[in-house]
Amino acid sequence: MVHNYVMRLNNLQRKIREEELDAYLVTAQDSIYYLTGATYDTAERPFFVVIYPDSPPDLVVPELERARMKKAQGIRVVQSYFDYPAAPGGNWYDKINALVGGISKLGVEPSIPAEISSKLWARDIVTYSLVSELRLIKTDDEIESIRQVARYADKGMALLVKNMYNGVSAVELLALSRQLQKEIVKAGDYDPLDNEFITVGRPAPQSAQPCSVPDYGDRLRRGPLSLVCTLRLAGYAAECARTVFLGPPSGSDAELFHHMETAREIAFSMIKPGTPCAEIDQATRDYFESQGLSEYILHRTGHGFGVGSHEAPWLSAGSKDVLEKNMVISIEPALYLRDTGGFRHSDTVLVTEDGYEPLTTYPATLAALTLKDRRPLKSLKGGFVRRAAGA
């Protein structure tokens, strides 16, 4: 997918002029990728883009990355510093201050590290979320990129479900991401620095810890099981997550699943331009509270997708964001019971002119996600994977 990086830089320059800034310093890796299309592994060495109101920007990088970073789009010149740290005169701040040290008003991103902001010599340093604001509304090419990632997220979920059996190990499910990766590599245009492949299965009750990493040898058996496929392809992210059962769920598990489904329906019904994101979160919370379940809420109803897998808009209490056409969000109200497990679906959703379009569409009903045990053949294959991984 071809993206118009020059247009993005021009849009940012317009915002810089509106705020009457002399320059704007971009330091976040996702922001630099969004503006230039350049991928890199930052490690401890910082990268910078200095954006001016009316002239092409400068890119400042470590010397060992200078030649490779000439791929950055819309840049006047790629400048370099020697290393981190370096002798006096060869550090990143020597180079940056030579560019911005004499200006009156410098804008910086809210995420700028204190180590960097403390060494800047500009007279007035002001925080502005200019790049984040640009990233909120997706262009047609960005939507098509996310749409493609969402299709692969559905494929990943189908792979996870297909390989489920009573006693499947976490490592077998993690290994499925390699199948998706091979398919992307075969399709061409593969850059390992802007692609991530995660397929995860969490057993019960660990599924009540939505950000936990299962041990390779963990086995998925009964209870609410969490399956997640989170991908970043060619720089853009999407996710599909489902709660599944191996065999019929208990009555209480089925009831909790139903409450999660109802909260999702409430959230989906509110998706349209002009809806405050905080109101969607409050509506799902109000429903859970009406059912006596508020103590089992661990997180917000959703967040944005784009270059980042978690970015604005935030569907959360306290958020000032308002939905607009061509935002891409997740919908994932959930319940987590420490001794039982988690009940969470997550979908990637496009806000349209009069509502929404689900970009991930894997079946979400209890009937579709109550799985039959395919133990004999799957267990045999799983044994090879476990032995190879030492699990």
Rank of each mutant, 00 (worst) to 15 (best):
K119P: 00
H310W: 11
T262Y: 14
G306I: 06
T365K: 05
G89V: 07
P205G: 14
Q291L: 15
P210I: 11
I51E: 13
R221M: 05
L134V: 02
R202Q: 12
Y356E: 00
D30H: 14
I125W: 03
Y336P: 15
M7E: 09
V307F: 01
M7Q: 13
R300H: 15
A158P: 14
R221W: 04
G342K: 08
I125T: 05
F268E: 02
G302A: 14
F82D: 15
K162Q: 10
L173Q: 06
P192H: 05
M1H: 03
N195H: 14
R8N: 02
L193T: 12
T352C: 03
E18R: 00
Q181K: 12
A175Y: 10
V228P: 12
I137D: 09
G235L: 04
D347S: 10
V49W: 09
L180F: 13
A43V: 09
L35Y: 06
V26A: 01
Y152H: 06
H3A: 07
A254W: 01
K378W: 01
R45L: 13
K119N: 03
F82G: 10
G201W: 06
V244L: 02
L256A: 07
V126C: 02
Q29R: 10
Q291F: 10
L359R: 01
L25A: 07
K272S: 01
L136C: 08
Y33T: 08
E196L: 14
G90P: 03
S294L: 13
E255T: 10
K186H: 10
L225V: 05
P273F: 06
A72K: 06
L12P: 05
D30T: 11
M270L: 09
R387S: 13
I198G: 03
D58M: 15
G274A: 07
D194Q: 08
R147A: 10
L371D: 04
T139Y: 11
V200M: 13
E109Y: 00
K155E: 13
T127I: 11
W121I: 00
G355Y: 09
T284Q: 12
A67L: 15
P333D: 13
E261I: 05
P192G: 11
G355W: 09
Y336W: 09
S104Q: 01
L366E: 14
M164E: 08
E279T: 10
E332F: 00
T36R: 06
P248Y: 08
E20G: 05
S250D: 07
C211K: 13
V200R: 12
M1C: 07
D54C: 11
E65Q: 15
V50C: 02
A187M: 10
C277I: 04
T262K: 15
E261G: 11
A67T: 15
A263H: 04
E20H: 04
P210T: 06
I112A: 03
S80H: 14
G107T: 00
E44C: 11
D94I: 00
T36N: 07
